[in-house]
Design a protein around this nucleic acid. Structure first.
Lengths: 319, 319
DNA sequence: ATCGATCATGTAGTCCAGCTTAACGGTTCA
DNA sequence: TGAACCGTTAAGCTGGACTACATGATCGAT
């Protein structure tokens, strides 16, 4: 294998002209330079120097080697520069896990902002469900996971750090024919007699909905279970019940379903990011965290193409 | 400066997972690996390893470093491959000097052939006059010079090797009104009384012309001196005399000037290549030499666009 | 033509980077 | 809980890399 250190001697010899000058420039004796260059010639298997009078001339093979050496030196400098850039959070790669609405509402806008401010910071996003993603962060497969605080959740591992991102308010989704469909705000207690469509048992959305109803003083009558908001809206439009949907989902009222704010103390989905304790100070991760926090605070979420937005997509399905 | 040897340890650690496995793979003790990686972390100024249970995990900074390391390793392998390729004359760069007609008649076709057979062999051609070019070959600025053997020439330096390329035959150039203009071959003695247009004193062409006339038994009456063949043909067309032109110049008869072969023993320009003695065995130079010899032997010289060929160019000037 | 200066390269000796051995603290798994 | 494993550290040793010096060759100036 070629010794890069010896390539440096060759480069210096090419620009200085003599071994003596090379040695002086590198604070060595000419003998050392001569020996090292002889070793380089031996390990590459080609002659590198030709005697020319009382000095030496680089052989054509040495010229070929030098061209590659310059590329190598440049690459080494780039590596050092990138380590410095990493210290400032400008380069690196971060693997993020998030649930669907967090991807479109928080991660995507953050990713857009980072692409502007730190183009060489690579973000990879994966849709990993909530209990597993934290294990993957601990295992090092992921660097950051976005989750929801709720009663049924396993407490966060002590080696993970919780960083609050957003308290996502819930709204009620009612069919147009519902008595409260035209109210500006809806008290949750008014839905005490309605049938509810909520997520499958064990999911964060279901826990949050149950907690909100409990706070309003009743236990919701669950009739249907659906995780996907498009499916939920379809069921509501079909008159199968009402639901609580997070504002982050980016849904909007249609001609068959209306979304209304909740009166009084508004129930929320507390959304947070989890990282390995200590790793949040790493420059690349702290840069991503800052972008996520900023995106969560930003009033207008990522404006996806209309066809993929929940409301319109549902309208297509129902039409 | 980053030590490439240590980067290898990091790469191995990344793929093997543990320091112990890395050490075993590289026939070292875990202690040595640990020490070298610690040294790498110190010289780069970043932490590279995080303890993870009883093993270690690469930090994000180490991942950044690894990406560069892989590029470096690939570049090193490319360098070794190119040294091997150099041994076969497939890569390298050769600086060639030649006079004008040799460039178009020999070097250009050789360059075309080499571009096909050895695309990574870089040839640079320079138009350097005859006495100086040999000094530049000796000095190492050039690798090969093409010259003409003639009486007035300084004998070739003993450190240079002469490789014959081509015995370029001369032809007579006559105005259409000349008595021999319609002869199929022209005996040189028949031009004893004509006035001659030849190159400037000291040039190879003039020496060759004088030697040819001397062999025919007369001393040419020189009236005009011109080096450029287009200028010579213009003068002939204007009725200012006759000339001897080399076939390699690629000239052809026009409606005002005819070219005719010389009867009897045809005078020639002996064209040769000169390289530093010993260097002709170097693979890159021997490849170029072989291409030059082949191009010189090839019956059809490089077929340049018509507008730059001597004959047509002259026709344009005279029209 | 000669002498001194300069240069590359051997040889012998010295020194330190990098290795090994041994010991230790921490973690995992039975 | 103990045994096995892992990574790190300390101490000592070895070989590679450097220096000092000598040699042979070349160049430039006198």
């Amino acid at each position: 294998m070629i010794d890069v250190r010896r390539l440096r001697l060759l480069r210096e010899l090419d620009s200085r002209g003599t071994i003596a000058a090379t040695a002086q420039a590198l604070h060595l004796t000419p003998s050392a330079v001569s020996q090292q260059l002889a070793a380089l010639a031996k390990e590459t298997g080609v002659r590198l120097l030709d005697p020319a009078g009382r000095r030496v001339r680089l052989t054509p093979a040495a010229q070929v080697l030098l061209e590659h050496a310059d590329i190598l030196f440049a690459q080494l400098e780039r590596a050092e520069a990138d380590l410095a850039a990493f210290d400032e959070g400008r380069v690196g790669s971060v693997a993020v896990a998030a649930f669907t609405t967090a991807i479109s509402g928080i991660v995507a806008p953050a990713l857009l902002a980072l692409r502007e401010s730190r183009p060489r910071l690579r973000l990879s996003v994966t849709d990993v469900p909530e209990p597993a993603c934290f294990d993957q962060v601990l295992g090092g497969e992921l660097d950051l996971a976005i989750g929801i605080t709720h009663a049924g959740a396993r407490p966060l591992d002590s080696r993970l750090l919780r960083i609050p991102l957003l308290d996502d308010p819930l709204e009620v989704a009612l069919p147009v024919g519902h008595p409260y469909a035209s109210a500006s705000v809806v008290p949750l207690e008014a839905l005490r007699a309605d049938e509810f469509i909520v997520s499958r048992p064990g999911t964060a959305c279901r826990e949050v909905a149950h907690a909100a109803c409990a706070a309003a003083g009743f236990v919701p009558q669950v009739r249907h279970n659906a995780d996907d908001f498009v499916a939920i809206l379809t069921l509501i439009a079909a008159g199968c019940g009402v639901s609580l949907v997070p504002r982050l989902a980016g849904l909007s009222s249609t001609d068959q379903v209306v979304l209304r704010p909740i009166a009084g103390s508004v129930p929320i989905r507390p959304i947070f990011a989890a990282v390995r304790r200590g790793s949040h100070q790493a420059p690349h991760l702290s840069a991503v965290l800052a972008a996520l926090v900023a995106a969560a605070r930003s009033p207008s979420p990522y404006d996806a193409p209309a066809s993929v937005r929940g409301g319109e997509a549902w309208a297509v399905h129902s039409g």
